[in-house]
Design a protein around this nucleic acid. Structure first.
Length: 317
DNA sequence: GAGATTTGACCAGT
DNA sequence: ACTGGTCAAATCTC
């Protein structure tokens, strides 16, 4: 966007990258609760979607200024690099990657995160690929069964992609079912092209939400939109099904995402305002960008201060 | 009848 | 021995 001074845009990118890194670190805490209620899993899922939104914002801004500095990550972030590189190929073959997934895998002690990815979803059976169920097991310690799927074209193309889906919570009248979906191996078949040919995510709010699942592993399939559109015009329908389903069960309306009251007290409005201020009208200095750490953050300067309070106060370990 | 799902059996890792 | 992942025959659906 030519109207934005480089310094302001860089601050905006820094802001988004900082929020992204913070959520990335804090998201796994939700799964460490002794009582993994549906609400907490849903919150975890929503955090994942928030991360995706930040990824998209980063990708958009990076695309507009490729030479921009890397986000302030304390260590090399493979997922971030994958995100940026995939952005350059937006519109081509689907890619699966998710830092939240990686974080969860690391938390679970997964030794090979590159070939196994985990996501939480309320729509585990619709991710754009064609799967064939080949088994079901009752997993020890859970009251739900785990279903095993392989790529339908396994024997046609030798595709080794598999996934298993396990319900973790919900499924009753009050909580939406939350599924943990674990993907193993990448698709080597061409079934992903079918997914790429699926209808765009943006729909009229009156339409039914029939869009394919874009799990947290597929952050870059969202339509290319401007930051302003992303924050001010994005209807709930542009978000992937996990959020859509959650919003359908909560007293949310179809107003733009930034104007909604969130499930938990994240000040997304201020976050969007901050990014918009820098990105859309030259970075008005009246909206200072926070550079504080999580420890010294305050409600006045930290868009995710409320999130931190939520995570800390809700913890029971 | 073809393809998908179900479900008990089997196997490998711990 | 226990558990998770896969196989394959039986069954179901279109």
């Amino acid at each position: 966007m030519a109207c934005v001074p480089a310094a302001d845009r860089e601050r905006a990118v820094k802001e988004v990258a900082q929020a992204y890194e913070r959520i990335k670190v804090q998201q796994p805490l939700l799964l460490l609760h002794h009582h993994c209620s549906g609400d907490q899993l849903l919150a975890h899922s929503l955090l994942g979607e928030a991360m995706r939104a930040l990824e998209v914002a980063l990708a958009v801004m990076k695309q507009q200024q490729p030479a921009l500095a890397q986000p302030p990550s304390p260590r090399p972030d493979d997922h971030y690099k994958a995100t940026v590189s995939t952005t350059a190929r937006r519109g081509s073959k689907r890619q699966r990657s998710s830092s939240s997934s990686v974080a969860m895998e690391e938390a679970a002690g997964n030794k090979n995160p590159s070939s196994s990815r985990v996501s939480l979803s309320t729509m585990p059976y619709d991710d754009g690929y064609v799967w064939r169920k080949y088994g079901e097991k009752t997993i020890n310690g859970t009251s739900y069964t785990r279903s095993y799927f392989r790529c339908t074209y396994k024997y046609d193309t030798g595709c080794q992609a598999t996934k298993h889906v396990q319900q973790q919570a919900g499924g009753n009248h009050t909580d939406p079912p939350v599924f943990q979906v674990t993907y193993n191996n990448e698709h080597t078949c061409n079934s992903s092209s079918q997914a790429a040919a699926m209808p765009p995510l943006i729909q009229d709010s009156d339409d039914e939400y029939q869009t394919p699942l874009l799990s947290s592993q597929e952050p870059l399939l969202l339509p290319v939109i401007s930051m302003q559109q992303f924050c001010t015009e994005t209807p709930v329908a542009v978000l992937p099904p996990p959020v859509l389903e959650a919003s359908a069960l909560l007293p949310f309306d179809q107003t733009p995402l930034c104007q909604q009251e969130p499930l938990f007290p994240i000040n997304m409005q201020r976050f969007c305002d901050t990014v918009l201020a820098a990105h859309c009208h030259g970075g008005d200095d009246t909206a200072p960008v926070s550079t504080t750490t999580a420890a010294e953050a305050s409600p006045a300067d930290d868009p995710f201060y409320d999130l931190e309070l939520f995570l800390l106060s809700d913890s029971d370990y």
